[in-house]
Design a protein around this nucleic acid. Structure first.
Lengths: 219, 219
DNA sequence: AAATTGATGTGAAACGATTCACAAAAAACA
DNA sequence: TGTTTTTTGTGAATCGTTTCACATCAATTT
């Protein structure tokens, strides 16, 4: 279910591309080829989210996109707060793709008074105004880009003020009550796991080459 | 297997913390409580990576960390290149956690000559020097933080020069040969999936409240 | 209008990951 | 030294996800 949601995002990105190219209809096979999954998977995923197509006719892209839009943003605009205006926070505050998908960072926060002077469109507030802003903009989701050491503390504060979803960039496992949704983005782990697989494959290829060598020696 | 690797990273982070606190030994139960999984899972994961403990004695933290270190960085230092010095690229280039884990961004690249003047420790080169640097530092892994539109093109170039692992921040599915490992980090998707779950839960709670209302009305 | 073709949608089968259950071993204790 | 306790390690069972196989339907052809 977690996975199928991720794939739905993939399909959507692909559909948007195809639509821009002027395509109107797709088959599960097309979508599958574009996204690197099987056609069955595509149909099962759609089925899971109650998305239906036309027997033999495939799917109308507009129709699909509309259904997905409805699925994701029950209410149109999503107000987000961003905590921590370090390097990562600053980059995230400037990331234009969020806005393109109706996710608006309405305010950012930092304890550092110097950071609070940054002017790049989105205001930077002191943490003391967190509750006020969350209430005013009815914010439910936060991006957490503070240092590891203060992540838990800030998370506690956020949930106390009614935040129920957090995208967390700090490399710690936040302890929150069960109803709070957390998505962890751990940059080190991402990089390190790539390195792991690269090494593993190099070793595998190494021994494969050895095998070939062996074969050669036999003849 | 993908999942167990992710969990191993979790365990490790936790072990590092415990070690700093002066703890020497752990049981699978301790580790499980700290990381939010079951003790069985911890042991199965260790077993998968051939990590053994002491019957009844649990695991020595130093021993575990050493084994994990060996597992991940077969060779000590990992040289990385970073392509794209936009907001995200700049933030990543300054991210200190990579260095702490022996992953060194040896050079960054951007097509914009203006960006090439940025001086923050790591040099910023023009794309024309990509191959030279990759060869010189024997780089196998790259971080891709370029705009969506040029991501595929740059990925092609990277793989042509011998890169076999990419952490990709562009929201596109890169088409690469099978031996290249790709980890996609899609910031929009991360945020959007949190929003999805938050909405879903609100709706679920909404109807739960309705049910309660119903119950109340009966009496 | 009947037959054929080519797609969807979905139960069933296969596969993979997690949890269970318990034997084995080591420590603690008697 | 023998018994008890406690924890690991792993085969077996369960659970969830993916793939398969095919009935179903709609468009197209004859």
């Amino acid at each position: 279910m977690k996975n199928s949601l991720k794939r739905i995002f993939l399909y959507r990105a692909c559909l948007v591309r195809l639509k821009l190219m002027g395509v109107e209809k797709v088959f599960s096979l097309t979508l599958a080829n574009e996204t690197g999954v099987t056609p069955d998977q595509v149909r099962k995923d759609f089925s899971e989210f109650n998305i239906r197509g036309n027997k033999r006719g495939g799917y109308y892209i507009n129709d699909l996109l509309e259904k997905m839009e409805k699925l994701f943003h029950a209410n149109k605009d999503n107000n987000i707060v961003l905590i921590g205006m370090g390097n990562m926070g600053l980059a995230l505050s400037k990331y234009s793709k969020f806005v393109q998908r109706n996710m608006n960072i309405v305010a950012t926060f930092d304890i550092d008074p110097f950071k609070q002077k940054i002017r790049s469109g989105i205001p930077v507030y002191s943490m003391s105004r967190l509750q006020e802003i969350i209430d005013r903009f009815r914010v439910k989701v936060a991006i957490l880009a503070v240092p590891e050491i203060s992540a838990q503390e800030v998370a506690d504060e956020l949930t106390r003020y009614g935040i129920t979803g957090i995208v967390n960039f700090a490399p710690v496992l936040l302890k929150v009550t069960q109803e709070v949704i957390i998505n962890n983005v751990n940059l080190c782990d991402e990089l390190e796991s790539v390195i792991y697989y690269v090494h593993k494959q190099m070793n595998a290829n190494g021994s494969k080459n050895l095998e070939l060598l062996y074969k050669d020696m036999k003849y």
